[in-house]
């Protein structure tokens, strides 16, 4: 969530706080349009807290300092908790379910329900905690020990990734595919990927596309 999004989201509260004071409303909208950047789910925590501060009539400079202080930590915490944790865990668990024989409907439903349970808990719960605690939102966050939870989620994601690949190879075996050579090649792919790092998805995408294009071309020539 960035500056203009923050201003858009806080508008209903500002309209209530500055009812009958159009100049005050304009000034407040302007203040909240300033640069802000945090994880879209955890930004609700800051949003709730700023709503409380506005309703309590805190000084604009204090609110600005609060927003500056929380945006970085909320951004990095959300990235590790959601993008690198909860989302891969739920996606990979759903793939395990699909490979175990679940129907497409059950797979998708499982993913959407589990993912959005965590998602909405963060958004709605974060906003409620922010609204209740105002600038003191740090205390309940520390009690939840979210970085530790993010590490646990990362461990679960790796476990489910292994499970997906194990199931894929096992399924191949049941369909008569030689497990050893394919398993070895997948292992080599994993090692190559871990050596090359996160950017490897980009050139893998081009390499696989080029290979498939070449196979289509061979089929056309033959």
């Amino acid at each position: 969530m960035i500056g203009a999004g923050f201003a858009f989201s806080i508008l209903p509260t500002l309209r209530r706080v500055y009812e009958g004071d159009p100049e005050g409303l304009k000034e407040a909208v302007n203040r909240h349009s300033e640069h802000f950047n945090a994880h879209p789910y955890l930004a609700n925590l800051a949003l709730g807290a700023v709503c409380r501060m506005e309703m309590d009539g805190k000084a604009p400079e204090e609110i600005r300092r609060f927003k500056l202080a929380v945006r970085g930590p909320l951004g990095s915490l959300g990235d590790s908790l959601v993008w690198a944790g909860w989302r891969p865990v739920t996606v990979l668990a759903s793939l395990v379910l699909a490979l175990a024989g679940a129907s497409p409907g059950a797979t998708v439903l499982f993913f959407l329900l589990t993912y959005n349970l965590g998602h909405l808990l963060l958004r709605v719960g974060g906003f409620a905690v922010g609204l209740a605690r105002g600038s003191q939102v740090g205390d309940p966050l520390r009690k939840l020990s979210l970085p530790h939870q993010a590490d646990r989620l990362a461990a679960m994601a790796v476990f489910f990734l292994g499970s997906v690949l194990g199931l894929v190879i096992g399924r191949g075996w049941t369909f008569g595919v030689s497990v050893l050579p394919w398993g070895a090649m997948v292992g080599l792919g994993l090692i190559l990927g871990s050596r090359l790092g996160q950017g490897s998805w980009r050139w893998t995408l081009w390499a696989v596309s080029g290979l498939c294009g070449a196979i289509f071309l061979i089929g056309w020539i033959a």
Partner: peptide, 14 residues
């Protein structure tokens, strides 16, 4: 096989 490469990168980043 192609998907194994990004999967390896994923393990590294976690």
């Amino acid at each position: 096989l192609g998907a194994a490469i990004p999967a390896g990168a994923f393990v590294r980043s976690l």
